[in-house]
Design a protein around this nucleic acid. Structure first.
Lengths: 225, 225
DNA sequence: GCTTATATTCATCAATGGATGAATTAATAA
DNA sequence: TTATTAATTCATCCATTGATGAATATAAGC
């Protein structure tokens, strides 16, 4: 931004502060290319700022990642947590919708989360995430237990894995590689995500077929007896 | 391996060739840490070989990645393709089982595939993969069309997305970050995967609940009317 | 046996990347 | 007004990395 050295004159236009520009550029770059692949020089260039500003504001590249993830996740997770607030029992559809609204508002979130979860860098961000995950897991345990006790869950399923199934349906579409997303007609925006939530719920409730207990084999399938 | 310079004496023990050691080390390292993160020196060290061997056999780091992915994928994909051979109509359960057998035999495959699909490096490997994906997508189209024409698919579902659902259930568990896998009790070995295949199929066929069309809300759920 | 091809290590180069201190300019406090 | 603090660029250092050209030792062909 600043063309010459020294502290820039205060200007009252709406251009972002250098710090914020860096966070924005970092969020974008880290999500797209991953922590290792992007250089601080590239990020600084995208932000239109000298690379030394990263040290000034965040201490290091890792610090920038930390701050980026935290400032991106924190508000959105907080919002998410209130949406599924503990006063109201956990409802899978509502959980999924809350999650999808969160994603729609910040599309690069999934990739960022994936990175935090994979490379254990950024302990702060990891703490935020794992706390949220633990919360959901914990509450879903009660949910499943209640349903199991009332024999409402299909006895042919492994009850330990229905959370896995639920999360698979919920998360994979928005986490899949772009190539796969294109092949499968994935389009991450609010409308599409809300429709997918309905689709997923219907699938979980009713199954894939018109007539239950019908095998999904091909018409002329010849399987071993 | 060789301690001193020059071509090593031929030895009849069963130790691998340097080339093979490199491929093995690379497969391991690339899958665990990603292309950018691992250095050729690290790979060479794991392989017990000088880093210059990478240039000698593969030309470059990218060449090593290419060769690694190709030599890892090619045989396994070929096997996979025959398992779902075109003579026999595509059966989802069989497809999933074939896929899981492939994964069980080569556990680092999913991460490798993910990398190839994400970073467009390694055009050869990408070609192998996309050919296989295209094949499956194409054949599943027929499968879905047939079912749709006979009104066998739940009309409340979006037929364009049932492949997405299927693949979500199939792929996410083995692709999820380790942290999530642990939380959800994922354990990638043949037995577990085969059981998961059954679970997934049951879920798709019958849905989650004992009584169809029952809403999965909490008992005392208070949702907006 | 001599020559050529093969397989291997070693030393090093050039590029890239992250980190850092200094210089510079503006805002703010005393 | 002056001294201090804040915000910024610039030049540069140092480590890591991928690539490369020897040098060296064995195997293989004639």
């Amino acid at each position: 931004m600043a063309t010459r050295k020294g502290r820039p004159k205060r200007i009252e236009t709406d251009q972002e502060s250098a710090r914020q520009s860096l966070i924005d550029a970092a969020r974008q770059s880290f999500a797209q290319e991953g922590f290792e692949k992007v250089s601080i020089r590239k990020i600084a260039q995208v932000a239109g700022v000298d690379a030394a500003m990263i040290r000034y504001y965040f201490g290091s590249k890792a610090g920038l990642f930390e701050a980026t993830v935290q400032e991106t996740l924190a508000p959105v997770i907080a919002q998410f947590q209130t949406t599924i607030d503990p006063q109201v029992p956990l409802n899978p559809l509502r959980l999924m919708q809350a999650y999808y609204r969160m994603i729609a508002a910040t599309p690069m979130l999934p990739k960022l989360i994936q990175q935090v979860l994979n490379q254990q860098d950024s302990p702060e961000a990891f703490a935020i995430l794992s706390a949220s995950v633990d919360n959901i897991i914990k509450r879903s345990e009660n949910w499943i237990k209640a349903f199991t006790q009332h024999n409402q869950i299909n006895p042919n399923l492994n009850p330990d894995w229905i959370r896995l199934s639920f999360i698979s349906l919920m998360v994979f579409p928005i986490l899949a590689p772009k190539y796969i997303q294109n092949k499968l007609g994935v389009e991450v925006n609010e409308d599409w995500l809300m429709a997918l939530a309905e689709h997923n719920q219907t699938l979980l409730e009713e199954g894939l077929f018109t007539f239950s207990n019908q095998s999904p084999n091909d018409n002329n399938d010849r399987r071993e007896p």
